[in-house]
Design a protein around this nucleic acid. Sequence first.
DNA 1: AAAGCGGGGCT
DNA 2: AGCCCAGCTTT
Length: 236
Amino acid sequence: MTKVVKVRQVPDEESPSTSELSSKLLTWYELHRRDFPWRSASSCYEKIIAELLLQRTQAVTISNFYYTFLQEFPSWESLSVAKESRLRELLKPIGLWRQRARMLLSLSRALSEMEFRLPSTREALERLPGISQYMASAILLLCHGRKEPLLDVNMARILERVYGPRKLADIRYDPLLQKTARSAVNVDDPVGVNWAVMDLAATTCLQNTPKCLECPLSEMCQFAQRLESSAEERRT
DNA sequence: AAAGCGGGGCT
DNA sequence: AGCCCAGCTTT
């Protein structure tokens, strides 16, 4: 039984299901996952700090910095009474230090006024300083066990390559990205799918030079299929 | 919708 | 030398 040769992605062809996408991601993840300290973090504080530090910054950079930060500021309470000048100094090596120092202080102080009880609804979370859609989803996913997507530039890139480009510049308001992202993590292991996306995007589905030949999604990926068919044309 | 933040790694 | 990185706030 030979495999049917796919000719070319037809525009109105049925898009691959997100359950197929999630299943391929989870299978790949078992073998290729990266290990980072925050993935085995015990407390919500540690998980949230990791997500905050990771914004616009490569994961490897933060993995080297993570314990240094936690050692000096092991809790929301210790952070809320920190000196801003000290925070700036500590954050210098990873960049965005003015903004991060200000945000970490205002967030920890806002939580302090709530007696450090973390809100459990998106609406309440997004009222906190420094918490917008992505961070609210991260907290709901990692601290409250909800099936939320970490829809960042990485997940957006993978979803766009599989399902086609977004309509809106802002990830947070693009209907197709939002819909497919939410659907993809509606599985038994939403955290696994999210981390699989992060790892695949960082190691394989790269921004500039994606390694489609070793990607588990290439068969369902418009981008990879386009590459393949244009390579085919050059050969003939 | 676009600019600004920012040091470090990669090309 | 230039581009990108687990976003958010401000303009």
